[in-house]
Design a binder for these strands. Structure first.
Lengths: 224, 224
DNA sequence: TTAAAAATGAGTGGATCCACTCATTGTAAA
DNA sequence: TTTACAATGAGTGGATCCACTCATTTTTAA
């Protein structure tokens, strides 16, 4: 698994920046959200490998974040780590029973955080275990992916998840026409043509890389 | 998931029988082992969905059990729940960092046990089912592939190679109509439906099995 | 030999994908 | 502010996929 993507959902600015800094320093790609609502949106869009989420959040809380992500993204090939100041037994059980994968009690050390991430990562790698026989077409196109815009990357991600145009339109809250336009633009940028070439490309790409690098993990195409 | 299998590794006879009775009472299949060594052997043989394992065991301890099972069975997608009397933070972290999925501190109630099992079960079901990219669909369909005829296998093979209907028709020296008919029949036999579902299936099948068992490696479906 | 299944091909219709053009609105940089 | 690009959405048309039905010929098994 190369370059895992980690999403941090934490409302306290200092703690959020601290965590993201630690994660980034150890070579993982990281994105963050200051609220549950933003976290859900980002998770659906970017499909991170690991989600680290505080339970006490303004607006919807961590439990609700987990529930909504489970709802929206049935392809739960990610790990969910809860953060909390409360460490009562019933609280811990509630989190785990909702489908969390780990439960870190604040304050936690850098090592505890990293070890937890590492353990979940290994678990995920075990689960996925897709063999990476290199594909010339994919390899050649990897550079060109950087020329895709944010919206185009979102669409490509959904294509790779196996969704059809109408489904993608619904999930991204845009019209089918817009999705179709994005598909055409993606195909053009990647030099693809012919029926099924895009779904074909997306699935092979996904077979190689656990998650597609976008849309906020990688700088979008420059405006000019 | 039908009839999940749960393995209980616990040396105290009373507790082990108590746990297995609870689990069995709620309709799950359950097997048990009184030692780590027996537990590892049983896990490798029976490939249970969930392993509930005490940490304090005579002979090899729970950590070692987990390590050995991970070693022997790296492809298995199962959940591992630790049981322990010690509930210190460092102890919990050690267990989770080794790849455990939950950590129950003794004494625990029947509800805590069942909820933990239920949560891990849902997680497993999600993983297996979703892997839109993976096993559940493929695995479930592997048997059905044997019901495909020779011509249908040839077509499925070409689909997996990324060819479109017109290309397949040309390569197999038949008309496009014939290929289309085969595609429909394949979809029907594999319980697929919707646009791209076939190419999607074929590519995932190919990603999973380096060589697809057909068209000439496996006997065709019996004529009647 | 006879009956069943497979393989081939055609017809029809609907849904989707692909590829163009065009327009509007928003955003970001010169 | 002006300019360029992104994002959105619509229109059109063609190719393909999907799902039916139907028919003919060939192969296979009883």
């Amino acid at each position: 698994m190369n370059n895992p993507l980690i999403l941090v959902v934490e409302d306290e600015n200092a703690l959020r920046e601290n965590i993201t800094a630690i994660i980034a320093h150890y070579g993982f790609r990281v994105i963050s959200a200051p609220s549950g609502e933003a976290g859900v949106k980002m998770a659906v869009e970017s499909n991170p490998d690991i989600i680290i989420c505080d339970i006490m959040l303004p607006g919807i809380d961590g439990f609700e974040v987990l529930a909504q992500i489970k709802q929206a993204q049935q392809s739960a090939t990610h790990a969910f780590i809860f953060l909390t100041a409360k460490s009562t037994r019933s609280d811990t059980r509630a989190g785990m029973n909702m489908g969390a994968d780990d439960y870190l009690t604040k304050p936690f050390t850098k090592e505890e955080l990293l070890n937890s991430i590492k353990a979940r990562m290994e678990k995920l790698a075990q689960i996925r275990q897709s063999q990476p026989e290199k594909d010339a077409l994919i390899e050649a196109s990897l550079e060109k992916i950087t020329s895709l815009t944010k919206a185009e990357r979102k669409v490509l991600n959904k294509i790779a998840e196996g969704f059809t145009t109408p489904q993608i339109a619904e999930k991204l809250f845009v019209s089918k026409k817009t999705v179709e336009n994005h598909r055409v633009n993606i195909s053009r940028k990647l030099d693809l043509s012919g029926p099924n070439s895009l779904i074909n490309f997306a699935l092979r790409l996904r077979a190689q890389k656990s998650t597609i690098p976008f849309p906020d993990n990688v700088p979008a195409a420059p405006s000019h």
